[in-house]
């Protein structure tokens, strides 16, 4: 019984404190990429096993907080859907506040160009879109301190 209550408590606190990744397919990805919002949309493609992705994540979290009036950050992981639990644990551990999506489609050639035709498929990759002007910036490498702000400011 104690064990049951304890695990219930763990489950509840886990759900209260942490958001989880939303699993999406290609149609939802396309919708996400063509959102008609006033805020600048920032998309970051990453994975829990990708070192440089994890290194640059704090910049996205910081920008998401400090520029919350102007930008919306969408973290899209390419982790396999079988690793969803691992992704959710990662989100909880890092206390990620940005929206996290997991793209569940390993036929990569069918959707990489829909993100950006300059993208070779290497991660991390970052796309910034100004939905009102249609202007976009795409970077296929790890962002260093200040580089994300620069990309954002170019489109604001």
């Amino acid at each position: 019984m104690i064990k049951f209550i304890l695990s219930l408590f763990i489950i509840i606190s886990y759900n209260l404190n942490a958001q989880t990744a939303q699993v999406i397919g290609v149609p939802q990805l396309e919708k996400l990429l063509s959102k008609k919002e006033e805020k600048l949309q920032v998309y970051n493609f990453w994975a829990t096993w990708c070192g440089p992705c994890i290194k640059e994540l704090p910049y996205f979290e910081a920008a998401s907080t400090s520029m919350s009036a102007d930008i919306q950050v969408n973290l899209i992981t390419v982790d396999f859907v079988e690793d969803l639990e691992k992704v959710n644990k990662f989100i909880a551990r890092k206390k990620l506040k940005s929206n996290v999506f997991l793209i569940d489609n390993v036929d990569y050639n069918s959707w990489i160009d829909k993100v950006d035709n300059r993208w070779s498929g290497a991660i991390p990759a970052t796309l910034v879109i100004n939905p009102s002007t249609g202007e976009r910036r795409f970077v296929e490498s790890e962002l260093k301190e200040g580089e994300l702000e620069k990309l954002i400011n170019e489109l604001l």
Binding site: P52, Y108, I112, G121, A122, I123
Partner: peptide, 9 residues
């Protein structure tokens, strides 16, 4: 020509 997700060199 095709593309795929992969680890950056």
């Amino acid at each position: 020509k095709t593309k795929a997700i992969g680890c950056t060199i």
